[in-house]
Nucleic acid binder design. Structure first.
Lengths: 258, 258
DNA sequence: GCCACCAATATTGTCATACTTATTCACCTG
DNA sequence: CAGGTGAATAAGTATGACAATATTGGTGGC
């Protein structure tokens, strides 16, 4: 119940470190993260009314400006809705913008559950498969070169962080080559999924897993190079499924031990 | 091309009417929409610095509170990023949250281009195909019943608005039955796509088009009822492709005429 | 003449307080 | 009992001052 001290920012830290974002530590972002996490974690139930401004003001010891800007940010992400005389209501989850990087991060802060990782893998399969197929049809030679280069860098990576960086770079390059702006827009989601997966278990530490991961990514790149859309689809599906399976397997075995 | 005069809120109005949202007309949302549209329309270039607070303050004739809350909202959607002493920078498009309902609406305000509609159809295919397949595996009997009921209502619809409403209801039901929270979260996107498509051309006005649209939706429902995942996939792909093709065809023929 | 450091400055960030507007709920009137 | 009416409450808006921060350019030392 006490959040006062401690400021636990476990997975958030990792993601921020990887992406280089979220450097600024404003007051308003403190309130934002506390409130955002409190809502996502269910501390404030969906459909319920948040404490009125005055009370939150007292709780956070900040100015009204700061509090209100934080709440406006939450409203922009679809988590809450303010109405005069009623108060500020927590919206039902299906109104939340789950594709938002912050909202995703808050979900991970309460420990990534297997079911959530699976949902993530499912959307990734949907979107990235399509991106791979489109990339196969529309890629330029430059873009194909970038893909192959990213795979080579993955193969040569020596630390989990390095590997994650190049893996992400690869998936961004596919999205870019698809020529569809929406595909590029979900890189935040991919980023989160990869970071979570690698936090749990990186293939770098297991030679045969590394080899397999690199091989399947190379297959994607090759299929796109060959303008082979069905092949790119299938390879992408395998890449995502494999990554999820490794993380989920590790989580379950860790769970059964405890 | 001229939008200069009178606050053209064409597609925005339709979407608001359909979804029942965006009723409130506060000062801050005026500024938000003006700025959001200005950024999305390229009036403020990506990477450029917005005018400083003082200037915008003077331009909009509102208090600093209002302006700053509007900017914070834009920042929450990934369109801008403010830094002390530097100013407020327009972020590159790949940082924008294109899945956000407002950001989408701003894109439509400047006239939906065929290429944008196509991108939208492509992501929808990616996500909703997967949703349909998952729904086929996980649906409850109740959910299957909802799907069939929605199709029946589509068939009986008499106005374009009515048809659009039940079409949306159908796609939401599929997302719901998939059991994946992300799928439900993109209904804003589907909503926008459907509204745009029906604004351009509704199948209600053409008996054979209506029949075809209803038939393909019924095929999706039936496949999900039969727990036939591949069938649901294929039917969903056809439904989305068909809707896009009709809208795109109508737009091109209208364009060649002018 | 080059480099490192520091101060001036411009821009966003934060604060405190007062006032306005909208909406619900209860009361009061017909 | 129905319907309007007003008080109470919460968010919305305004304003002016001060703090934090990072760039820019100057200043001094080497």
């Amino acid at each position: 119940m006490d959040r006062s001290g401690g400021r636990a920012r476990h997975s958030g830290d990792l993601i921020a470190a990887l992406s280089g974002r979220n450097l600024a530590h404003n007051l308003h972002s403190d309130v934002l993260w506390d409130m955002g996490f409190a809502i996502v974690s269910g501390q404030y139930e969906q459909g319920s009314i948040l404490p009125p401004d005055t009370e939150l003001l007292d709780q956070f010891r900040v100015s009204r400006t700061v509090l209100r800007e934080a709440l406006k940010t939450l409203a922009a992400k679809g988590l809450i809705e303010a109405r005069a005389r009623i108060g500020t209501r927590v919206l039902p989850r299906n109104r939340w913008n789950l594709f938002d990087a912050d909202v995703l991060a808050w979900h991970f802060e309460l420990g990534p559950e297997v079911s959530f990782l699976q949902s993530l893998a499912e959307v990734r399969i949907g979107i990235e498969i399509e991106a791979a197929a489109l990339a196969a049809e529309r890629r330029t030679d430059d873009q194909a070169g970038m893909l192959l280069a990213a795979v080579d860098r993955m193969a040569a990576a020596r630390t989990p962080e390095e590997f994650a960086r190049y893996d992400l770079e690869f998936h961004k390059a596919v999205a870019d080559a698809s020529g569809n702006p929406f595909m590029a827009s979900i890189s935040a989601l991919v980023e989160m999924a990869l970071t979570a997966a690698f936090t749990i278990s990186s293939p770098v530490n297991e030679p045969e897993a590394l080899e397999q991961t690199v091989a399947v990514h190379r297959a994607i790149a090759q299929a796109i190079l060959d303008r082979n859309a069905p092949g790119a689809r299938e390879a992408m599906r395998m890449a995502i499924a494999e990554g999820f399976a490794r993380a989920a397997g590790r989580m379950e075995s860790a769970e059964s031990k405890s």
